[in-house]
Design a protein around this nucleic acid. Sequence first.
DNA 1: ATGGTGGGATCCCCA
Length: 256
Amino acid sequence: MKIVTWNVNSVRARLPHVENFLKDEQPDVLLLQELKCESHVFPFSLEDLGYNIAVYGQKTYNGVAILSKHPIEDVQRGIPNFEDTTSRYIEAFTGGVRVASVYVPNGQEVDSVAYVYKLKFFEGLYNHAQYLLTLDEKIVIGGDFNVAPTDDDVYNPIAWKNQVLCTPLEREAFRKIVYAGFTDAVAQSTQGPMPYTWWNYRQGAFAKDGGLRIDHLLLSPQATDSLNNTTVHRYMRGLEKASDHAPVEVQLKGGM
DNA sequence: ATGGTGGGATCCCCA
C-alpha cells in the first residue's frame, strides 16, 4: 500500500503534474496540501483516473484533500476541538488505514502573530494525535509540517539557526507528536543523509540541492509495524512549472 | 544586499 503526501502549491496550476504522478506512480492514497482553491472548483476530473476524492478547500490560500483508490469513509474536516477559520486538516478512513492531510501554518517570522498561531495549531494537532492513538488503528498523518525536525534535515543549519521552520519551539512541537507514539517514517527508514522535500524557488536552490525536509509522514504504532520503505519523488521538483515541494511516499506491507 | 521566484488574488498577500 502506497501513501503519498504532497504540497502541490495550487492543484489547478499543477494539474498536469498531478495527473502524470497518479498515472506513473499509482499511489493508493494521495494527500494534498496548498490546493489554493475552493472545494467546488477542485479538479474532480482526477476521479477519471480511478480515485475517490474528499476536499477541504478555501479561496486563495491553504486547502487540503485526500485522493484514494479505495472507498473514503468517516471524513473529518478541520482538527476536532480546535478552532480554525482556515482549511488545513482533513482526515478519513480508507483502504484499512486512517489517513490525514495536514498543512501546518508557515509561521512567517519568529514571535509574529503567525508564529504564535503555528504553535497553537501544533498544540491542537498534538491533542488530536493523542486521541487518534487510542483508536489502535493503522494511522498515517501526512503533510507539510513546516518544520525541519533536526539540523540533519537542513542543507545549511548555520544560516537557518533559529529561523522559522528550524526554531527549538517548532521542533519541540513536532517532537511531542513523535514522543506521543508516532513514527517519522522517512527518518525511520533512511540510512545516511536525510532527503530534502522542499527547495525554495529563489536563488536556484534546487540546482544547489539547498533544501529542507519539512514534509513528513507520521505513523501510528500499528502502521509502523507494516512500514516497508519511503521514497521522496525528487524528480517532480525538477520538472517545468514544478511545485516547490516533492511528493513523499511511504510503502506499507500488505494491502487491504 | 531587506533582494530573489512563484501562485492567486487585486492594485499586494503569502510562501
